[in-house]
Nucleic acid binder design. Structure first.
Lengths: 201, 201
DNA sequence: CACGTTACGGAACGTTTGTTCCATAACGTG
DNA sequence: CACGTTATGGAACAAACGTTCCGTAACGTG
């Protein structure tokens, strides 16, 4: 029919998401994106429409992966607290290794939520979705007796999610493993039973 | 001797800090700064040297104010937990009112810590200072029996500080009061009396 | 009231920004 | 093997970027 594309659309979006996550939106120029994606400007605008639209696509793609990973960690077998601890541990591994595929979600919220209505709208909807998902898991866990019901599930869900995101912030300043683990240990305490509990040691 | 300046240096730095805090570094152009400060470019470069240097000055000025406010809240009379709760309440008031003089510290860390070594160095030093300050207050509080010694003071200090900063992140997406209060209530739980959990990392 | 010094306003600079345009290349189809 | 269609590379664009420069204005001093 016609000349075929020489690059994969979705793959390019993921590369863009990584670059935006590393450098931020404003600091990432279109020319830098062209280099990273290995395409020329005409292909760029034909495929993505422009910088801002590519960012929205990248943000959505990143969010989807993030949500799936979250679901994967929190829907296994075992106590909810253990599952969430595993999630934090994995996140710490990633952050401490310096790989630094830091969360585009965090960056987008800080850099663009106030100035770009589209970004705010997306994040608002996306984070609500995450919170609902985790809140439901928490409700199920409390019904099993896994965790106490000291807080409204939605509040607890939001707290846990934002604490996880916050690890990315902590890591921006110090990505030492014990720093991150120290933070995570205390954040996780919100899931401990507040009544006296048996010492398992 | 010579023609006197028509604007106050420190006042201008604070205005710049507010603008940078609202819009971020890259999104704030020099022309926008000139408008906000009400000066012309020649005065700008004579007084501050350039955009980047003004940012560093603004960051330092903001940090000083932030540190003093923190000290003010945490060195009064009363239990440490109450003092920290007052701090969070005041922060929530500010964030919920939408005034939105959001923390330049948070923005600088997310947007620039990875790309501008000067910013990282400053934040690293500044946050260490804050953590030490709070850790000392925590040590004193535990010696009074105010709070339990479940965690190393430095870890607890870092957790509390970053939780406070994290409210700024939460507010970016939803600045509803009950959202922020829900988060703060759970974060504060780290200061409640409890025996150390056996599974601390 | 002239002088030296410093601050001011604003035009101008070169560079980089995001985007558009067009001639050319690479396909599937008739 | 020409044709229609779509992708590509790169030149070109206006606008905005951070910064510099210069003539002028506003002081304190002699």
């Amino acid at each position: 029919m016609a000349r075929p594309k020489e690059f994969d659309h979705d793959e390019a979006v993921l590369k863009a998401a990584a670059l935006f996550g590393r450098q931020g939106y404003e600091a990432t120029s279109v020319r830098h994106l062209l280099d990273e994606l290995g395409i020329s400007s005409s292909s760029f605008y034909a495929a993505f429409g422009g910088k801002e639209q590519l960012f929205m696509e990248a943000l959505a793609a990143h969010a989807e992966i993030e949500r799936d990973q979250l679901r994967l960690f929190l829907t296994g077998t075992g106590a909810f607290r253990d599952q969430f601890k595993n999630l934090l541990d994995a996140l710490i591994d990633e952050l401490a290794s310096g790989g630094g595929t830091s969360s585009l979600t965090l960056r987008a919220a800080i850099e663009l939520a106030a100035s770009k209505p589209d970004v705010l709208a997306f994040l608002s909807r996306y984070l609500s979705e995450l919170i609902n998902m985790v809140a439901n898991l928490i409700t199920a866990a409390t019904e099993r007796g896994d965790i106490s019901e000291a807080y409204p599930p939605e509040h607890l869900a939001r707290y846990l999610l934002f604490s996880a995101f916050n690890l990315g912030f902590v890591a921006k300043v110090s990505s030492r493993r014990d720093t991150l683990e120290g933070y995570a240990a205390i954040a996780l305490h919100a899931l401990d039973d507040h009544r006296p509990h048996p010492v398992i040691l």
